[in-house]
């Protein structure tokens, strides 16, 4: 089993750290993982994206053009990556700020209003964990317990008191994700 994922959004949305938690969680499940960020000028104030590959086998190219799952968090990323989902693949997006919704019929589209939910929870920092929860619901590749272990491993110890809050954000994400087609 290999899952090739792109997570794309604005810098500051926690795109890279969401990918890092996914990668750590994969390790907790004895999987091979790779985490390849876009780096450099395109990240300054613009879009940030990261390719995460989780696999039971040795990972070939960490840089790929088509993905099993795209997690899209702003309009620029929608324009860029909707077409990069493999036929039969999965697209998950946050509706906040999206003016052109996904149009493809050959992939499964899910919407998760994580930004809105994070505002309701009065904790905008949990935004990426809500999205990750939604992903885990529809692509249950990693077990929740391994995500929590991954979270513990990727967060510095001084933030460990925030793990319960992140856990409830993950659970909330699992509840609010909606299939659109």
């Amino acid at each position: 089993m290999t899952e090739e994922i792109i997570i794309a959004g604005f810098g500051g949305q926690g795109v890279l750290s969401m990918g890092k938690i996914m990668a750590y969680s994969g390790i907790m499940q004895d999987m091979e993982v790779s985490w390849m960020p876009s780096y450099g000028p395109e990240m300054r104030g613009g879009t940030a994206n990261v390719t995460v590959i989780l696999s039971e086998e040795r990972i070939s190219s960490p840089i790929i053009r088509v993905f099993d799952t795209a997690i899209i968090l702003n309009q620029q990323s929608m324009d860029k990556f909707e077409k990069s989902v493999k036929p039969g693949g999965t697209l998950i997006y946050d509706g906040n700020g999206i003016t052109r919704h996904p149009e493809r019929k050959d992939i499964t589209v899910y919407r998760i209003d994580a930004a809105e939910e994070a505002t309701k929870l009065e904790s905008t920092k949990t935004f990426n964990m809500i999205v990750l929860g939604g992903f885990l619901k529809v692509r249950p590749i990693i077990k929740l317990e391994n995500v929590l272990k991954g979270l513990k491993k990727s967060l510095p110890e001084r933030y460990h008191h925030m793990i319960p809050m992140n856990e409830s954000a993950l659970m909330r994400g699992m509840e609010i994700i909606n299939r659109l087609n």
């Binding site: 890092k20 990668a23 390790i27 091979e32 993982v33 790779s34 985490w35 390849m36 960020p37 780096y39 990972i59 960490p62 840089i63």
Partner: peptide, 8 residues
């Protein structure tokens, strides 16, 4: 790419 990517 190898400098910037994370793997186990």
């Amino acid at each position: 790419a190898i400098g910037q990517m994370m793997e186990k």
